[in-house]
Computed example of a mutant assay.
Amino acid sequence: MGKFKLMSADEVAEYSLESLKSNKVICIPGYRKRMIAKLISILPKSFYYKMLEKY
């Protein structure tokens, strides 16, 4: 898939089960996706909503 390596279903399931064992409520598998989630959480909501309107 181009530049991005996708996680297999087995990798996602394994990561999810490990998170569940650690009592984590939210589980975001994949380094890039975690970084995007953190970035979104610190953006001003107005900027975030404007970005969503474009897509």
Rank of each mutant, 00 (worst) to 15 (best):
K21F: 11
S46K: 07
Y48S: 08
S19A: 14
R34D: 10
K50H: 01
S8C: 01
G30H: 02
M35F: 03
Y49H: 04
K54W: 06
K45Q: 09
A13E: 07
M51N: 06
E14H: 02
K21W: 09
I40K: 10
L20T: 11
S8I: 03
S19M: 12
A9L: 03
V12N: 02
K38F: 06
S41H: 13
P44C: 00
K54L: 12
S19D: 08
M51V: 11
F4N: 13
K33T: 14
I26Y: 12
P29K: 04
G30A: 05
K38Y: 07
N23P: 09
I42L: 05
S41I: 07
L6H: 14
L52S: 00
C27P: 02
M7A: 06
L52F: 00
E14C: 01
K24V: 09
Y15T: 07
K5R: 10
E18Y: 00
K54I: 12
L20K: 12
L17H: 09
I26V: 14
I36Q: 14
S8Q: 02
K54Q: 11
S46M: 01
Y49E: 12
A13D: 04
M51Q: 08
M7R: 09
I42T: 10
S22C: 13
S41Y: 10
M7C: 04
V25P: 08
L6W: 12
L43T: 05
E11S: 01
Y55C: 04
K33R: 15
S16T: 05
A37G: 11
M1F: 06
P44D: 01
E11P: 00
Y49M: 07
N23C: 15
L43P: 02
Y55K: 05
A13Q: 05
K5T: 09
A9C: 01
L39E: 04
S41Q: 13
K21N: 13
K38V: 07
K3S: 08
L20Y: 09
V25Q: 13
Y31L: 13
S22N: 15
R34F: 11
S41F: 09
V25F: 11
S46R: 04
I36E: 15
M35E: 11
S46P: 01
F4G: 09
I42D: 06
K45P: 03
K33W: 14
K45L: 11
E53N: 09
K24T: 09
L43I: 08
S19C: 15
I40G: 05
Y48G: 02
P29E: 08
A13F: 03
I26T: 14
K24S: 13
R32C: 13
Y48N: 04
S46C: 01
F47D: 08
E53F: 05
S8G: 02
G2C: 12
Y31H: 10
F4W: 09
A9I: 03
V25E: 15
G2S: 14
L17R: 12
Y31T: 11
K5V: 10
K38D: 10
Y15K: 06
K50A: 03
R34I: 14
K33V: 12
Y55L: 06
E11H: 00
Y55D: 02
I36G: 07
F47Y: 05
S16L: 01
I26H: 12
R32L: 14
L43W: 10
I36N: 13
C27V: 08
K50F: 00
E18M: 06
I36C: 14
E18N: 06
E14D: 07
L6F: 14
R32H: 13
Y55F: 06
K24D: 15
L17N: 11
E14F: 00
L20S: 10
S41P: 11
G30E: 03
F4R: 14
